[in-house]
């Protein structure tokens, strides 16, 4: 799986969680730049990503990532 695919999966899940089909995000986007992407919705995102990507996040990994690129890095380490 390549970074672009993971980015698209993250975006699709955020669209669903935030109920915003106009959402545009990139690797440099951080949660505090996106309306309603708060700590609760971040947890919802992680739970969705666990199901879609068949991965598990550890407790210390549930705090908001710095930006989407860092979240992609984390996901790709789990997919190796």
């Amino acid at each position: 799986m390549v970074r672009a695919q993971v980015l698209e999966i993250i975006r699709n899940n955020l669209v669903e969680i935030l109920d915003n089909d106009q959402l545009q995000v990139g690797e440099q986007t951080s949660a505090n730049e996106v309306e309603d992407w708060d700590s609760l919705n971040h947890v919802r995102l992680l739970i969705s990503l666990e199901a879609v990507l068949n991965i598990r996040f550890e407790p210390e990994e549930t705090a908001s990532a710095g930006n989407i690129g860092e979240l992609i890095d984390l996901i790709l380490t789990k997919r190796q």
Partner: peptide, 8 residues
């Protein structure tokens, strides 16, 4: 059972 632990 599907819970995600939030932090240590």
């Amino acid at each position: 059972k599907g819970f995600l632990q939030l932090g240590p």
